[in-house]
Design a protein around this nucleic acid. Structure first.
Length: 255
DNA sequence: ATGGCTTATTGTATAAGA
């Protein structure tokens, strides 16, 4: 099975790219972030015509997450249970007996901002929920835009980024708390080198110069780790006209 | 060098992203 995550930065703008990518890559599961639209605007019909079922937790202008799959999407969960949040950042479902959690983790904006505190609080709520969720669903995958570069290999210029959002110690510790639940950064099961990124700033020719960050991840539970067979970051969509600033991260597992 | 792009908004400048 092929799983993928992609922050599309407006599904309204990026739908043609998503449909092309589905046709080319034929993933079994595609998690989207930043759809930036209400459920009433979500392109269920166009996706259905492409052979994909979808569940969406959306809102106007900001955030919004979706799970797409040609398979049956069951036991859908919207938002983190018991955590009051106006922002639509979580949708989870069971597909082929695997618990798929699609997350758009807050950006944090700046270390001294309220949004940074929200990011850390939100990550804590996510971790507490997943601790329970893994007990109920040992085969669990957390896919999404984490807005965290786990270590310096995941940043194009660690010296310039010291202490900034995406790389700060509290954020990296929060990432390690997720790992401590028994989750594994699947991309790193196959690639140890630096310089592999999933996001590039639109400005300053960031993509052309590979000034990027690896902030989109697929974490898999212990029960899934041994089934992982390949992972890649597909840079092709980032080269298209009017691209998202993120590009898809892909994981293949046996079964 | 606090700029540089891109998206959305009952817009025409502002907020947010990362």
């Amino acid at each position: 099975m092929k799983f993928a995550t992609w922050n599309v930065n407006s599904l309204n703008v990026r739908l043609p790219h998503v449909l092309d990518w589905l046709a080319t890559e034929k993933p079994d599961v595609l998690c989207l972030q930043e759809t930036k639209q209400e459920d009433s605007k979500f392109p269920y019909e166009a996706l259905k015509e492409a052979g994909y079922n979808a569940v969406h937790n959306g809102q106007k202008t900001y955030n919004g997450v979706a799970i797409l799959s040609p398979h049956t999407i069951a036991d859908v969960q919207y938002d983190i249970p018991g955590y009051s949040d106006e922002q639509k950042r979580i949708v989870a479902a069971t597909i082929n007996n695997i618990r798929v959690v699609c997350a758009y983790i807050p950006n944090g904006q700046a270390i001294d901002s309220d949004k940074y505190q929200y990011k850390l609080t939100w990550l804590n709520a996510l971790t507490n929920w997943l601790q329970q969720e893994i007990l109920a669903h040992p085969k669990l995958m957390l896919l999404g835009d984490y807005n965290i570069a786990p270590d310096d290999r995941d940043c194009h210029d660690p010296a310039a980024w010291v202490g900034q959002v995406l790389v700060s110690e509290p954020e990296r510790l929060a990432f390690q708390k997720l790992v401590a639940l028994g989750l594994h950064d699947s991309f790193r099961l196959f690639e140890e080198d630096s310089g592999h990124f999933s996001w590039w700033d639109y400005r300053m020719a960031g993509f052309r110069r590979n000034l990027g960050m690896r902030i989109d991840h697929i974490l898999v539970s212990d029960a899934l780790k041994s089934t992982c067979v390949a992972s890649k970051i597909d840079k092709a969509p980032r080269k298209l006209e009017r691209p998202s600033d993120h590009t898809p991260v892909v994981l293949e597992i046996a079964a």
